[in-house]
């Protein structure tokens, strides 16, 4: 066991003991977010972009668009592709190279939240049915990792999509235009909870994520609609715990949407 492992074990014990008393390392309430900062249009050259900070976690989302062929089952709809990169500068545990399971999971959870909410009007992204459609490429760059990548990434993604300028397609060429917007008519946001012992807390920090037994993420929309949920971790939840967390996710989702 390395000294680093021992350090984590001690920290983990401490987080566990605090959680049992309903307390947290940074003094937050169990249903409280860290400070949130959203900077839309952060990269001026991108079609759409946004930088989101939730406490020490920073995620930059960028949107680019291309033209390609549609999926066979949706010949008259555009397509969304989400990628996530966990670059070494964000955390000592991240390595450069092809995406590892953690990065793929972030991309998938964010992708599902946006896809299942039907936030982007995909049918309006059809150029020629069955032949050419717009492809929306959403890139998530984690710049600093201090826990809760899901919520920060989804907030950044939704914010970037909302300020994406839609290009024009003429004679096989993509022409940039600044006045037309990508048709985004819903604002999906995600709320993630960690379960440590019998305590459930919103927006876990890195130490809490390393200690948690299980986690659950809810993607919600306006009018208290749930559009995606995902449980993770080795532990388990009781039915009531899930429903209580969902209530908080609806409430906090409204607060998150104010930043968009």
């Amino acid at each position: 066991m390395s000294s680093e492992d021992i350090k984590w074990e001690v920290k983990s014990d401490y987080i566990h003991n605090l959680a049992a008393k309903g307390l947290r390392h940074d003094g937050r309430k169990l249903d409280e977010y860290r400070e949130i900062v959203v900077k839309p249009n952060y990269i001026e050259n991108a079609l759409g972009s946004s930088l989101v900070k939730i406490g020490g976690t920073q995620v930059l989302a960028g949107v680019s668009m291309g033209v390609g062929s549609p999926y066979p089952d949706t010949p008259n709809e555009g397509a969304l592709m989400t990628g996530c990169e966990l670059v070494p500068l964000a955390s000592p545990t991240f390595e450069s190279g092809p995406p590892r399971p953690e990065a793929i999971e972030v991309a998938r959870v964010v992708d599902r939240g946006i896809r299942e909410s039907h936030a982007i009007d995909m049918s309006s992204l059809c150029i020629e049915e069955g032949e050419t459609v717009w492809l929306v490429m959403l890139d998530l760059h984690v710049l600093d990792y201090a826990g809760n990548l899901f919520d920060a990434s989804t907030l950044a993604a939704t914010s970037a999509l909302l300020n994406t300028r839609m290009p024009k397609y003429e004679d096989g060429k993509i022409i940039r235009e600044s006045n037309k917007k990508l048709p985004v008519n819903k604002k999906p946001v995600e709320c993630t909870f960690a379960k440590i012992g019998d305590t459930i807390m919103l927006d876990p920090i890195l130490e809490e994520e390393k200690t948690m037994d299980a986690r659950i993420t809810f993607a919600t929309l306006e009018k208290n609609t749930l559009c995606a949920a995902q449980k993770g971790g080795f532990g388990s939840f009781k039915e009531k715990e899930v429903m209580d967390a969902l209530d908080i996710a609806f409430k906090k989702g409204k607060e998150l949407r104010k930043y968009l």
């Binding site: 949920a229 939840f237 429903m243 609806f250």
Partner: peptide
């Protein structure tokens, strides 16, 4: 002990529909 070990959801559901679906 009826602990939930896997739960995923996609689509659109209200709270009461989700409760019903889980039950």
């Amino acid at each position: 002990d009826e602990e939930i070990v896997l739960l995923q959801m996609d689509g659109a559901l209200s709270k009461s529909e989700f409760e019903k679906a889980v039950a």
